[in-house]
């Protein structure tokens, strides 16, 4: 009899554990990465050659994206999509920054960065850094990048992540957008983030 009771208790405990694991549905459209990734932190330089760090963007919501300016398709379309998403948030757009981090510092000099960022709009800042700085940042957010073989004219492809990491005003990593997420989806969550 006592054994029976023990078993019942065990099962009850198991049920509580299982129930505890069930999470309420996420209110976010994008991937919720709260608590999964470390807060925003980096040391890079912008198009004017000035050193930039997360401190320069304190109080802003930040969209962090890795790419390179010679990228034929994915980078420009993603950036255009992010700009459109930020525009759709209306007033909240004021304190939202898109940080484009070039992982191809050999070709993306400060001049190139300056022009590239400006071409997409005032919300976009193009950044880059030394290999050590870029490796540290990509390792922090568990993304990879690498270089393909150069062709006869010295052109080469760069493999990079398609993730857009979204940080709140306090620099905490909150959301992850992927290539498949539309501007509308991103703006929906940006609005919600701005309302916090």
């Amino acid at each position: 009899m006592r054994r029976h009771c023990n078993r019942l208790w065990g099962m009850a405990l198991l049920l509580i554990l299982v129930a505890g694991c069930e999470r309420s549905p996420s209110p976010w459209v994008l991937h919720d990465i709260s608590g999964l990734m470390p807060p925003l932190e980096f040391t890079l330089h912008d198009g004017s050659g000035q050193t930039r760090s997360e401190k320069d963007y304190r109080g802003d919501r930040v969209l962090l994206y890795f790419g390179y300016t010679h990228c034929p398709d994915i980078c420009p379309t993603t950036l255009a999509k992010l700009v459109s998403a930020v525009h759709q948030t209306g007033k909240a757009a004021e304190r939202t920054r898109i940080l484009f981090v070039s992982v191809d510092p050999a070709r993306d000099t400060t001049d190139v960065l300056q022009h590239y960022g400006q071409a997409f709009g005032p919300q976009v800042t193009a950044l880059s850094g030394t290999q050590a700085q870029l490796r540290a940042l990509s390792k922090r957010y568990r993304v990879s990048y690498g270089y393909g073989k150069a062709d006869a004219r010295g052109r080469y492809e760069v493999s990079h992540s398609s993730a857009v990491f979204i940080f709140d005003r306090h620099g905490s990593a909150r959301l992850l957008a992927t290539g498949a997420d539309s501007a509308k989806k991103i703006s929906t969550d940006l609005k919600r983030l701005a309302a916090e």
Partner: peptide, 12 residues
Amino acid sequence: YSVYNVCGRAWP
């Protein structure tokens, strides 16, 4: 497993 597309693969 989309995470490898999102974060990038080690080589193409």
